[in-house]
Amino acid sequence: MTSPQVHLVEEGMREGLQIESADISVDEKLRLLDALSRTGLKTIVVGSYVSPKWCPQMADTEELVARMRPADGVTYTALALNRRGRERMLAQSPPLSERAGAGRTLVHLCDVFAQRNTNRTQQQEIAAWEGVVADAVAHGTTEATIALNAAWGSNWTGDVAEETRLDLLEAQHQLWTDAGIPVTRVWLGDPMGWNLPHVVERHLRNIMERWPSITTFHLHLHDARGAALLSAYSALRVLTSEHTLVLDTSIGGMGGCPYCGHGRITRMIPTEDVVDLLEELGVKTGVDLPALIEAAHVAESVVGHPLWGHVSKAGPRPRGNDLYAMDMPFVETEEQAQHFRLGPTVYEGALSPWKSPITSPMRSQ
């Protein structure tokens, strides 16, 4: 498999915590942010500058950023949805960095969700494109991103046809082309978990064929129906070494939008699971997987309930000195399964029917 370059964007501090309890303290958020900063992740979204009335979980973003301890080599970003939000974000930049892709047009493919999520209709979003392009020209923007949200379907309006996706990307692409700004990126969001691997793969192939100048594909996939990691794998299969795949992921898989209809169950790709998969596929991430697993357990402590990652529960595939002890007793509970990181004390006293030590020519010890 000729894989694309892969860049992970950690969304647990923003997409994850925005659907968790508003009572989580800044001290606890900093504990999670510090754990994530030690993993080797290169981009971490720390929060969002939005109305505390509608998203009280993000009301302390300014305090969080003021107190954060940035790690070398990590880019910290935040989400801002309007002019006031951008002003607040810029006032804290640095330590924050502005997110790439200022030259970007976007449309939701569900008019109902657009109104629920942004208080704007789909037609109002489309009408705003010309102003966005004009502003980008005035600021000397040299590259552009075209974007779709609710790209694969909606809990209120159902499936989206491939022709609709391509037509709305074409309309955006033409505006940028007419302005003399090349389109090099596409952003595809799926807030309601409608992604399916074969549909994602077909859509990416069509984009590659129609617009070869697009070399960066940014996927924001939610996992409400369990297909997000499969869809990310499909993207890895179809893109080549000439492309960059940006994946938004979240520690423990936490994440969700209160406007989409299934809250915390919306979830995202667990960061630890995708790092494990990428490394097994030979795609180097630069991420310390054991440190990431520890961060997942910190995240569970911070939010106060179990999260949904798999590798943090079962551990990576053991090899070499990490192979399991052949004489270990029965392991039945989730707590006992943590022996891979906590040692054999977690299964002390468990049933052990072996009458003599187990040996095997397949193992030296």
Rank of each mutant, 00 (worst) to 15 (best):
M254L: 15
P258M: 11
C260P: 00
G261E: 11
G261V: 08
H262D: 10
R264D: 01
T266G: 15
R267M: 15
M268Q: 15
P270T: 12
T271R: 12
T271K: 07
E272C: 09
V275N: 11
D276K: 04
D276L: 08
L277P: 01
L278E: 00
E279D: 13
E280M: 03
G282S: 12
G282D: 14
T285D: 03
G286D: 09
G286P: 11
D288M: 02
D288G: 02
D288H: 02
L289R: 04
L289N: 05
P290H: 10
L292G: 06
A295K: 01
A295E: 01
A295W: 00
H297A: 09
H297R: 15
V298D: 00
A299W: 00
E300K: 04
E300D: 12
V302F: 01
V302W: 00
V302H: 01
V303N: 02
G304D: 11
G304A: 15
H305T: 07
L307T: 05
W308L: 00
W308F: 01
V311A: 07
V311C: 10
V311N: 04
V311G: 05
S312F: 01
S312I: 02
S312K: 08
R317M: 09
R317L: 15
P318S: 08
P318C: 10
P318T: 09
P318W: 02
R319I: 09
R319F: 06
G320A: 10
N321Q: 12
N321F: 04
N321K: 10
N321D: 12
D322H: 09
D322M: 06
D322K: 11
L323Y: 02
Y324I: 09
D327Y: 11
M328L: 13
M328R: 15
